[in-house]
Simulated scan of single mutants.
Amino acid sequence: MTQRDRDRIAAGLADGLAYAEIARRLDRPTSTITREVARNGGPAGYRPQQAHQATIQRARRGTPAPPRAATPLGGMEEELIEMAVGAGMPRMTARVHLDLVLSEDGRRTAAELTRRLKVSPASVSVAVNYLVQQGFVRRERDPQRRRDIYVVDDDAWYHSIVISERQTLETARATMAAAETYGLDSPVGQRLAKTGAFLERVSLDILESAGRWRALLA
């Protein structure tokens, strides 16, 4: 758990949030937040900087720190996860995605992801559903064992870009429709029309570029 995570826990406690809500905002199990607060002064006495330093001291003494749903990843992989989180992807989703990307054949079952990431099946399910919806991952069915296999292949980035830009195109066209409703000769209508035209043009350019360079993924 990072210093920033602990600062957010403290802010949540100050706002009177329940542990479950704090955990949801940090994309962590509720039990992790409960243990973190209990080990570091309780709800009334929790201080993020002191909690962070205490964890460092425990680690130096060889005392296990409050468990985090750890991955078998190194520093570079953790940095990639932080970059994905910074771009708006939920942390658990980023961890699942990266584990798939770094697998030998780009394939994992839900049970494998649960075991490797040491998280609940429900957490994996939520993450995978997001990845499938965004085109980063696809599902394949194992007919013999009646289970889903989650696959990230070389074409995944193309599909994710196409899905994203089609969503932006829908937004652009809805914006232009709103501009007509307000009237293209009104200030609001003109502003909306310019925004819609910009989004539409950029999205079409990106879709064209993605199709032109798709062969690089083959």
Results as ranks from 00 to 15, higher is better:
Thr195Asn: 09
Leu102Gly: 05
Gln134Met: 14
Arg25Ala: 11
Arg4Tyr: 09
Leu199Lys: 07
Glu140Asp: 14
Arg116Pro: 03
Ala10Pro: 00
His97Trp: 10
His52Ser: 06
Arg24Gly: 02
Leu204Val: 15
Gly62Thr: 05
Arg147Ser: 08
Trp213Arg: 09
Arg166Pro: 00
Ser203Phe: 08
Leu216Pro: 05
Lys194Thr: 09
Ala197Pro: 00
Glu82Asp: 15
Asp205His: 13
Thr175Gly: 04
Gln53Cys: 05
Arg25Trp: 10
Ile149Lys: 08
Ala94Leu: 13
Glu82Val: 14
Gly88Val: 14
Gly196Ala: 02
Gln167Lys: 09
Glu82Ile: 10
Ile56Ser: 15
Gln134Arg: 15
Arg141Asp: 07
Gln133His: 04
Met1Pro: 01
Pro90Val: 04
Asp153Lys: 08
Thr32Gln: 03
Gly12Val: 14
Ser120Cys: 07
Gly189Tyr: 13
Ala18Ile: 10
Leu199Phe: 02
Val85Ser: 06
Leu102Ser: 03
Gly45Val: 07
Met92Trp: 03
Gly211Pro: 02
Gly41Cys: 04
Ala87Tyr: 06
Thr109Lys: 09
Asp99Arg: 12
Pro90Leu: 03
Ala215Val: 14
Thr55Asp: 12
Ile81Phe: 10
Ser164Trp: 02
Gly41Leu: 08
Gln133Met: 04
Gly196Arg: 03
Arg214Ile: 03
Lys194Gly: 08
Ile56Glu: 15
Glu104Gly: 06
Asp155Val: 02
Asp154Arg: 13
Ala111Leu: 15
Gln49Asp: 13
Arg214Asp: 08
Arg108Glu: 05
Ala177Cys: 12
Asp185Ile: 07
Gln3Gly: 05
Arg146Ala: 15
Thr195Val: 08
Gly62Trp: 06
Arg61Ala: 14
Thr71Trp: 06
Glu78Leu: 15
Pro48Ser: 15
Val137Cys: 09
Asp7Gly: 04
Pro72Asp: 12
Ala197Leu: 06
Gln53Thr: 08
Thr181Ile: 15
Ser120Lys: 01
Arg166Asp: 12
Ala18Gly: 14
Ile22Leu: 01
Gln50Gly: 03
His159Met: 13
Thr55Val: 12
Asp15Trp: 02
Ala94Lys: 01
Ala110Met: 09
Thr2Phe: 06
Asp155Asn: 08
